[in-house]
């Protein structure tokens, strides 16, 4: 039944957007972080999406055409040089009194967070529309 695989596609979209939102929240939380396990200040992370076939292992036997879902193919890490801020008293300051601070722009992350939220909602709407269609088909038996 092809309608059920639509649910998997919407679910893949929801999962991908949720991962993206998690990274954006992490960016906002760490916008002031100057020290990380990798060394240096926090670097902005973002999810990279790639379209991927979605379906159960049985679906591929029955359905010749697979559906296109989405998944997070990787996490891109901001490679720009950190900004320097003059703060001689800071424990992470270098010999000249400058501290490397993160390049996270909270405004950018907030806007992306709104976008991730909207995309998530769109996937939920798609899922509930398909769910109604499946319910209609089941009602034919009544």
């Amino acid at each position: 039944m092809s309608l059920f695989s639509s649910l998997s596609v919407s679910a893949s979209g929801m999962a991908a957007q949720r991962t993206r939102a998690a990274l954006l929240v992490e960016n906002i939380a760490n916008s002031e972080t100057t020290r990380t396990p990798e060394g240096g200040p926090y670097r902005r992370k973002d999810a990279v999406f790639i379209s991927t076939p979605v379906g159960s292992e049985f679906a591929s036997e029955l359905d010749s055409q697979m559906q296109t879902g989405v998944k997070v193919s990787g996490i891109s890490i901001d490679q720009r040089e950190p900004e320097k801020q003059y703060a001689p008293g800071h424990p992470d300051a270098d010999a000249n009194g400058y501290v490397n601070i993160s390049r996270v722009n909270p405004a950018e992350d907030m806007v992306d967070l709104v976008s991730a939220n909207r995309s998530y909602q769109a996937n939920v709407a798609a899922m509930s529309a398909v769910k109604d269609m499946i319910q209609r088909s089941i009602d034919l038996l009544k």
Binding site: S2, G13, S51
Partner: peptide
């Protein structure tokens, strides 16, 4: 109904991939 559900499949894919580069 088959055709409508097939189209709904494509719409779901489009919505899921609304932020996928190159889609």
């Amino acid at each position: 109904m088959d055709l409508v559900s097939m189209r709904q499949k494509l719409v779901s894919s489009n919505i899921a991939n609304a932020d996928t580069p190159g889609y």
